[in-house]
């Protein structure tokens, strides 16, 4: 939204900043990618090998051949999608309620939401595990969907609430007068206006679910239902169980992250900037 203007100095600073951003973000990841295509013997060498003697895809092949990595991808996708959906819906409704509808005692609800955000997930592990055992939901993907949605609700609710509040009240008043129902206002006016916030929140929640480890590890022990992080933790050396298979792990990290990057690429195109300008006219 900002035009940084012309001027060589400005442009130079900008290019420098962008380069810095790229180096920062991609650097260590680039190292992972490089490692994933190096032959095993060259991985932990000193001095460091930057250009491998030969590029090999054996780690990627091993990933899908020896372990059911494709299955892990599917599991992660299912769990993350459903959890994100659940979280976004509940969060949107709650944020709308807290932001625009006059609820008695809304500070109390905010404190509750805040309090939930402060709970360290590790202490939820054992009680939730017992709960899941009781519901016979161990090795059931639902055992992950509900906790993930709940853990991200405070975040979704508070972020969306902050963005919803920015929408001018008169706009909503006008809509009411025009005959919109409250739910209609939410879905037909507020949602389009908050597209950046919604997309952002959804992406961040999705990534959280995708990479969550402790709950996934504890609630799912059958290989067929494992998610990616748990799958990676189960990778072992080719020749010995003590060996940490760097090549394999790097390949897994790269493969596991690619869907997320693609997702972001898709989503961010949907954030069309002109939306906000359009709605405010008239």
């Amino acid at each position: 939204m900002q035009d940084l203007g012309s001027g060589m100095l400005r442009k130079g600073c900008f290019i420098l900043a962008t380069a810095g951003l790229l180096l920062f973000s991609v650097g260590p990841f680039g190292w992972e990618v490089l490692t994933s295509i190096k032959p095993s013997s060259e991985i932990a060498q000193s001095p460091v090998v930057y250009v491998p003697s030969r590029v090999t895809f054996e780690h990627y092949v091993a990933l899908f051949a020896r372990r059911d990595f494709g299955g892990y991808l599917v599991n992660s996708a299912v769990v993350s999608s459903l959890a994100t959906l659940l979280c976004m819906i509940a969060g949107m409704l709650a944020a709308y309620a807290l932001a625009k509808l006059n609820i008695p005692g809304s500070p109390l609800f905010l404190v509750i939401v805040l309090a939930v955000a402060l709970v360290p997930p590790i202490i939820l592990l054992i009680p939730l595990y017992e709960m899941m055992r009781w519901a016979d939901w161990i090795n059931h993907r639902g055992a992950l969907v509900l906790p993930y949605a709940a853990l991200n609700l405070p975040f979704a609710t508070l972020v969306l609430r902050a963005f919803f509040r920015q929408i001018p009240q008169d706009l909503l008043e006008a809509a009411r007068i025009d005959g919109f129902t409250r739910v209609g206002i939410l879905f037909k006016i507020i949602v389009p206006l908050s597209a950046p916030a919604l997309a952002t929140t959804a992406i961040l929640v999705f990534v959280f679910c995708w990479n969550e480890f402790i709950f996934a590890l504890t609630f799912i022990t059958t290989d067929a239902y494992k998610t990616i992080p748990v799958g990676i933790a189960g990778l072992s050396g080719v020749t010995s169980p003590y060996e940490i298979p760097w090549g394999l792990i790097s390949a897994a990290a790269v493969t596991g992250t690619l869907p997320l990057i693609v997702l972001v690429l898709i989503f961010q195109r949907r954030i069309v900037q002109g939306l906000t300008a359009g709605a405010l006219k008239g």
């Binding site: 054992i126 590890l217 933790a233 072992s236």
Partner: peptide, 23 residues
């Protein structure tokens, strides 16, 4: 034969959690 993570500490935590929940 149930395959767990390669880290022994993590496997210990998994055993512990399962014992605590009983059965």
């Amino acid at each position: 034969y149930i395959e767990g993570p390669w880290s022994t500490d993590t496997r210990e935590a998994l055993y512990t959690t399962s014992f605590l929940a009983g059965e």
